[in-house]
């Protein structure tokens, strides 16, 4: 459990790439942690825990997708397999660098801007709720959130490039 706690944050990032919303991420991680507990004796080295755990999360996420086969508001299993394959090589170090870049970029926003970005990411329909609370159309508020997320994306990419230049220089 100590290992799971240490890597939970990165496992959540991985699970999010495969699941349509955060409640589904929470459910899958809970199921995956139970499986990990049962199969812990199969883990040979502690340092291999992260990749081993990701394989279990992947399996549980795809199982959850099959359970929700009738739900058309999720990506297909074929697409999720492709995403899972291509997400797997990302290491914990890679994630930490991206995390630091994003944190730096969030620091450039005002408090109000951060709150709007956070509210949109914290739960599905967050933008709709904001729109109702502010008497604006969801579409117009969504566009504002979209611009901020795009700006964060661009900023984070620039930060990562700068980090790489610094580390190589």
């Amino acid at each position: 459990m100590r290992l799971f706690v240490r890597h939970e944050r990165d496992l959540r990032v991985f699970a999010r790439t495969l699941l349509p919303n955060w409640p589904a991420v929470d459910d899958v991680l809970q199921e995956a942690s139970v499986v990990m507990w049962k199969k812990l004796d199969q883990l040979e080295k502690e340092e291999e825990f992260y990749f081993w755990a990701r394989t279990i999360v992947r399996y549980e996420a795809l199982r959850a997708r099959r359970d929700a086969a009738r739900d058309r508001l999720v990506l297909s299993e074929e697409t999720l397999e492709l995403l899972a394959n291509e997400a797997m090589p990302t290491t914990a170090d890679d994630l930490e660098q991206e995390r630091a870049a994003l944190k730096c970029c969030l620091g450039k926003l005002t408090d109000e801007q951060r709150e709007l970005v956070f509210a949109a990411s914290m739960r599905d329909g967050g933008v709709k709720e904001l729109a109702e609370a502010t008497n604006r159309t969801a579409n117009s508020l969504y566009k504002l959130v979209g611009r901020l997320r795009a700006a964060l994306r661009d900023c984070a990419q620039r930060e990562l490039k700068n980090q790489k230049k610094t580390s190589h220089g």
């Binding site: 944050r9 959540r12 990032v13 999010r16 790439t17 291509e86 997400a87 991206e98 994003l102 956070f118």
Partner: peptide
């Protein structure tokens, strides 16, 4: 995948 990771990091910060 990059957008999804960004979403996760935003949530972590939140």
């Amino acid at each position: 995948l990059a957008a999804s990771r960004l979403d996760s990091f935003i949530r972590e910060q939140a």
